[in-house]
Simulated assay, not measured.
Amino acid sequence: MSPTKPRVALFVTCLVDLYRPTVGFAAIRLLEQAGCTVEVPRLQTCCGQPAYNSGDRATARDLARPVIDAFLGYDYTVAPSGSCAGMIARHYPALFDDDPNYRGRAEALAARTHELVSFLADMRGMTGVRARYEGVAAYHDSCAGLRELGVRAQPRQLLGTVEGLTVKELADPELCCGFGGTFCVKYPEISTRMVADKARDVEATGADTLLAGDMGCLLNMAGRLKRQGSAVRVRHVAEVLADMTQAVPPIGDA
């Protein structure tokens, strides 16, 4: 790792802020362990992804501008979410393709934006963590993290160093859980079928814990598992890697 500490801005994400602040604190702990100075810009807002995915580019741009203004001055922007990181890193430049004032700024921010676990492994060279978690976990690959940012091996690599933890693969770890942001609202019947299939896949592994890196996926899968009476615990991968699972109960249990 570099002897100098990079300044990292944590993009907390709406769902972490509103439903699971512990994930934000876990992200800060991990980033500091990786030798970073972490700041949380107070003026951050939604990244604009829900509006963008719904075709409302005007609202998405209105939301994206203050994000660019708040985060551009840092060495890196890191988010504990593949979908939000993917929005900034992959879609912001095109969102401002006809705006000469923000196109270059959007490109600059996009180039410095990363999903949390991939940043730790790929940018900071983290190969292991000091954490313990007794159990057997299945890992779900979120669509945006996997397909837009290439997040797959990194969480498995770091989870493999957690004492007491065994990781089992789902039969179809790369299949969508059915959340898809506004997809689950527009197509509830299809979404319900998809998350039911995912829940069956999780149960079939015999795992007692389900992990993922996106709160949208986790809330969706936790809700389905709870409604069908499953005992599987659901957690964000950052909570396990940061050894903070004692801080809060599993997602959906509180």
Score class of each variant (00 low, 15 high):
D98S: 14
A26H: 12
L165P: 06
A238Q: 08
A85P: 10
G150F: 06
L149R: 03
R147H: 15
T45F: 04
K226Q: 02
A199K: 14
G135D: 09
V136I: 15
L159C: 02
M215A: 09
Y19C: 00
C184T: 13
G125Q: 12
P249H: 06
R103C: 13
T13C: 13
L210E: 04
A231C: 04
M126L: 15
P100N: 08
D197E: 15
T245P: 03
T182G: 00
A89F: 01
L211W: 07
Q33V: 13
I88T: 04
D75E: 13
G35N: 06
P250I: 11
G160S: 15
A254H: 06
A79D: 09
L30W: 06
V40C: 09
A222T: 05
L149W: 11
A70W: 00
S230F: 15
G160N: 12
L175N: 02
T205G: 01
R147D: 08
E169D: 15
Q44R: 14
T182V: 00
A222C: 00
R20F: 06
I68H: 03
V185P: 07
R132W: 10
S142N: 07
G86K: 03
R193D: 09
L225S: 01
D97P: 05
R42T: 06
C36A: 15
H114V: 03
R124E: 10
D69Y: 07
R156C: 12
H236C: 04
P93D: 12
